[in-house]
Simulated assay, not measured.
Amino acid sequence: MNQLISLHNRLFSAVEHHASDLLPLLARLVFAATLLGYFWASARTKLGDGPFGFLSPSSGAYAQIWPRQFEAVSYDVSQLGPLHWAVAVAGTWAEFILPFLIVAGLATRLSALGMLGFIAVQTLTDLYGHGAIGQPETLGAWLDRHPDSPILDQRLFWAFLLVTLTIRGAGALSADRALAAWWPRATPRPA
């Protein structure tokens, strides 16, 4: 029995030692496989027409980000103010830039933190702007037997993935790791 316990301890000590680099890399790969396409597809629906569409959000952007305000002005973009435009543009850019940075492993902790904020705003907009708070099948419930509600269940998994990256960083095979090796370490100044 002692040999079995010793084998167990050696095996999982090695796993734990290598997990510090492997876990964040796997988290980035899972993000790329499951959420990158989702966020980029969503961002594409917010782009306006032409080469400067990234500065001129589509009406769909306002409908997604400002649903009640957009409805209140009878879906006339010209009646919305500069704040509405700025948030729509920033939200669109964030959906392109932050997922790319996470997958590349560049500024990973800040990017993951930004995505957590983005998902929080997205969730509040879905709950209160689009009325999902009153739709039990969309809202879902924790500790029930259904693990597939879009709000409480799925977004909890998203948040866990992003919290892992916020705490652990990018891990192996990342731009952060390459820059850290290349960038000279700061040395403390003498007192």
Score class of each variant (00 low, 15 high):
residue 82 P to H: 11
residue 40 W to N: 05
residue 79 Q to A: 14
residue 178 A to G: 02
residue 177 R to P: 05
residue 49 D to N: 12
residue 138 T to K: 15
residue 15 V to W: 12
residue 86 A to C: 04
residue 25 L to E: 03
residue 180 A to N: 09
residue 83 L to I: 15
residue 92 T to N: 01
residue 6 S to W: 10
residue 63 A to Q: 13
residue 35 L to N: 07
residue 19 A to R: 08
residue 24 P to I: 06
residue 60 G to S: 14
residue 113 L to S: 11
residue 156 L to H: 09
residue 62 Y to H: 06
residue 97 I to R: 01
residue 131 G to S: 02
residue 25 L to H: 07
residue 1 M to I: 10
residue 68 R to E: 13
residue 68 R to H: 07
residue 4 L to S: 12
residue 49 D to F: 11
residue 56 S to Q: 14
residue 61 A to N: 05
residue 110 L to C: 00
residue 191 A to T: 11
residue 172 A to M: 12
residue 133 I to M: 10
residue 54 F to K: 04
residue 168 R to E: 07
residue 158 W to V: 13
residue 105 G to N: 01
residue 108 T to I: 00
residue 113 L to I: 14
residue 25 L to N: 02
residue 27 A to D: 05
residue 104 A to H: 07
residue 94 A to E: 08
residue 83 L to P: 03
residue 17 H to N: 13
residue 28 R to E: 05
residue 62 Y to Q: 00
residue 147 P to S: 09
residue 44 R to M: 11
residue 17 H to I: 13
residue 31 F to L: 03
residue 112 A to T: 06
residue 185 R to T: 12
residue 27 A to F: 01
residue 66 W to A: 03
residue 122 Q to K: 00
residue 86 A to D: 04
residue 115 M to G: 01
residue 169 G to H: 05
residue 133 I to A: 13
residue 97 I to G: 00
residue 78 S to E: 12
residue 18 H to G: 11
residue 188 P to H: 10
residue 29 L to W: 09
residue 60 G to L: 13
residue 54 F to Q: 00
residue 111 S to M: 06
residue 142 W to V: 01
residue 125 T to M: 04
residue 177 R to T: 06
residue 110 L to R: 07
residue 87 V to I: 15
residue 88 A to P: 00
residue 110 L to N: 01
residue 31 F to M: 05
residue 136 P to G: 06
residue 26 L to H: 04
residue 175 A to D: 03
residue 138 T to D: 06
residue 11 L to R: 11
residue 136 P to A: 13
residue 85 W to S: 00
residue 12 F to C: 01
residue 36 L to Y: 04
residue 70 F to R: 04
residue 93 W to V: 15
residue 181 A to P: 03
residue 146 H to I: 07
residue 24 P to E: 02
residue 119 I to Y: 02
residue 109 R to P: 03
residue 174 S to N: 07
residue 22 L to A: 15
residue 162 L to G: 08
residue 3 Q to A: 12
residue 113 L to D: 08
residue 59 S to G: 14
residue 114 G to M: 09
residue 149 S to N: 11
residue 37 G to A: 09
residue 12 F to T: 12
residue 16 E to T: 14
residue 142 W to D: 06
residue 58 S to A: 15
residue 93 W to Q: 09
residue 96 F to E: 06
residue 81 G to P: 06
residue 64 Q to P: 07
residue 57 P to F: 03
residue 39 F to V: 01
residue 21 D to T: 14
residue 25 L to W: 14
residue 172 A to C: 09
residue 42 S to I: 01
residue 187 T to S: 13
residue 115 M to E: 00
residue 141 A to M: 10
residue 100 F to K: 03
residue 10 R to A: 12
residue 187 T to V: 14
residue 60 G to T: 12
residue 182 W to S: 12
residue 165 L to G: 07
